[in-house]
Design a protein around this nucleic acid. Structure first.
Length: 223
DNA sequence: CCAGACGTTGTT
DNA sequence: GTCTGG
DNA sequence: CCAGACGTTGTT
DNA sequence: GTCTGG
C-alpha cells in the first residue's frame, strides 16, 4: 500500500529531471506527505504542467468530502469495476510526483510497533505514481480536485516489508498513462516496478506523526 | 421498489 | 473498536 | 499510512 | 451516478 510518501527535490531540479512544464509557485520540499494533503500532479502529457490536488479521491457523486479519506489507494486489479474509480480510470488518469515512499513492516501477532522504511531510487531520482483524479463540488459550490494512488503487488525489493506497493511508472511509460488508450494497454502499465534501482532503509518512527515533515524523516536508522 | 454503499489494508 | 484528520 | 478522539452542557 | 441487498 502507499499511505505516506516524499517529494524532497526543489522545483527546478524536478522540472528538469522529469521534463515537466510549469511548476507551482508555492513549491516546498516534502518529507512526510500524508492523505488529505495537497500533492503535485500532472494530468496532460504535452504541456505537462504541474498542479496541486488533494490526496484522497472524492467521487463526483459524494455528499461528503470525508469519503476521500477512504480513497487514498485504488487496487490496479479492480479499477474497471469499482464504482468510485471506474470513470476516473477511463477518463481522468494522472501522474503523482514523488521521490520516495514509506511502508511499515508489521510483526503479525506480536504487540510490537510497526517499523517504517523509506523506499527510493538510486541517486534519489524523482519518479511518478500512476494515479486517478476527480472533480467534486462542495455544498458551497467550491470545486475540489482530488486523486488516488494506484497499488499493485509488491516487487521483490518491497515484499520483505509489505505485500503491496504503489505503481511506479517509467520515464516513457508515464506519458503513455496520460494518453487515451485501450484498457489492455493501460493495464500493461500497471505492473510492480521491475527496475533494480529501488533501495530502502529503516527510518525513525517520528514519521508516524503526519505533522512531522522534516529532512530527518528520511535519515537512515540502524536496524 | 428504496436504502445504503461506493475503499484498502491487515487481522481474526 | 472505529472513525476522522493530517 | 498513523495519531488521536470517541461527549454534552455551561461558563469564560 | 450506479450497483447491491433487502
Amino acid at each position: 500500500m502507499c499511505g505516506r510518501f516524499t517529494m524532497a527535490l526543489d522545483a527546478l531540479e524536478l522540472q528538469k529531471e522529469l521534463e515537466l512544464g510549469e511548476m507551482p509557485l508555492d513549491w516546498l520540499p516534502r518529507f512526510n506527505i500524508a492523505p488529505s494533503q495537497m500533492v503535485a500532479v500532472v494530468i496532460e502529457p504535452n504541456k505537462r504542467d504541474v498542479s496541486w490536488m488533494r490526496w484522497g479521491l472524492i467521487p463526483s457523486w459524494a455528499k461528503d468530502i470525508r469519503i476521500g479519506s477512504r480513497m487514498i489507494n485504488a487496487r490496479a486489479e479492480t479499477l474497471e469495476v469499482r464504482p468510485a474509480f471506474r470513470r476516473a480510470y477511463a477518463q481522468r488518469r494522472c501522474l503523482i510526483l514523488a521521490d520516495g515512499f514509506y511502508e511499515w513492516k508489521r510483526n503479525p501477532g506480536k504487540k510490537v510497533p510497526a517499523i517504517p522504511y523509506h523506499f527510493y531510487l538510486n541517486g534519489r531520482k524523482p519518479f511518478t505514481f500512476a494515479g486517478l483524479w476527480e472533480f467534486w463540488k462542495s455544498p458551497n459550490d467550491e470545486e475540489i480536485k482530488s486523486c488516488a494512488i494506484i497499488t499493485c503487488a509488491a516487487n521483490p525489493a518491497v515484499a520483505a516489508v509489505h505485500e503491496r506497493m504503489p505503481v511506479i511508472l517509467g520515464r516513457e511509460d508515464c506519458w503513455r498513462w496520460l494518453e487515451p488508450r485501450s484498457t489492455p494497454e493501460l493495464a500493461k502499465l500497471l505492473q510492480p516496478y521491475s527496475g533494480e534501482d529501488l533501495s530502502l532503509h529503516r527510518v525513525s518512527k517520528l514519521i508516524n506523526r503526519p505533522e512531522f515533515d522534516h529532512p530527518d524523516c528520511i535519515l537512515s536508522q540502524e536496524e
